[in-house]
Design a protein around this nucleic acid. Structure first.
Length: 203
DNA sequence: CCATAGATCGGCT
DNA sequence: GCCGATCTATGGC
């Protein structure tokens, strides 16, 4: 077990985000159930209330983003475009509203279950996007607000730090509010494919 | 390879 | 009403 600490998440999302690369997203379903595990390869930071126009927390708490304002180290899960779910980790002190979006991961354990949930896809296609990652893990709104440190669904510390990390703008954010807050593992096939990848730089 | 339509929900212009 | 922290299927080059 390589548990993360509450303190790890009790920092600005921008600081936590790059350190989540290489960490493991794990979904342990009962003593005899499946063990799903994936190495996180792409994340985005979103700041709290009043700091970041692209963040759901920008204008303060709403019913949807209430868990962003809860204690750090828990999940903020929301439905995107009416269809998919996106998985975030709450960062910073309680009441601030910061979070890191998990955008992509490389599946390392429980591949058959993920493949079934992903309609028979395999390899990098299992979790190379925010909605795909949530689908592969079976994550829905019922995980919103759940503990991400010791729960059945959780994040564990990295065994090895990624060799090279790159930064780019966040995907799908309007130019006026754009910030270089997307972090991903260089040359990793499980990173989502976007034109921003070519423009990425060293942190 | 690239562009686009459609699914469908919460929050705000 | 409209737009968005998305993905897939489809059609064109």
């Amino acid at each position: 077990m390589a548990r993360l600490t509450r303190r790890f998440f009790d920092r600005p999302a921008l600081r936590v985000a790059p350190e989540l690369l290489g960490c493991r997203l794990i979904h342990q379903r009962g003593a005899r159930g499946d063990w799903l595990e994936a190495r996180i390869v792409e994340v985005e930071a979103y700041a709290g209330e009043g700091e970041d126009p692209a963040s759901h927390a920008h204008r303060g708490p709403t019913p949807r983003c209430a868990s962003m304002f809860g204690p750090p180290g828990r999940f903020y899960i929301y439905r995107c475009m009416g269809l998919h779910f996106c998985v975030n980790l709450v960062c910073g002190a309680k009441g601030q509203g910061g979070a890191v979006l998990l955008r992509a991961a490389c599946a390392v354990r429980g591949l058959p279950t993920m493949a079934r949930r992903r309609g028979g896809r395999s390899g990098r296609e299992l979790a190379n996007g925010p909605g795909k990652l949530a689908q592969a893990f079976g994550i829905t709104a019922r995980h919103d607000g759940c503990d991400a440190i010791a729960g059945a669904l959780r994040v564990e510390a990295a065994r090895e730090r990624p060799a090279r990390i790159l930064v780019s703008g966040r995907v799908g954010i309007r130019h006026a509010t754009e910030r270089p807050w997307r972090f991903f593992v260089a040359d990793d096939p499980s990173v989502s494919r976007t034109s921003l990848n070519r423009l990425a730089r060293q942190p």
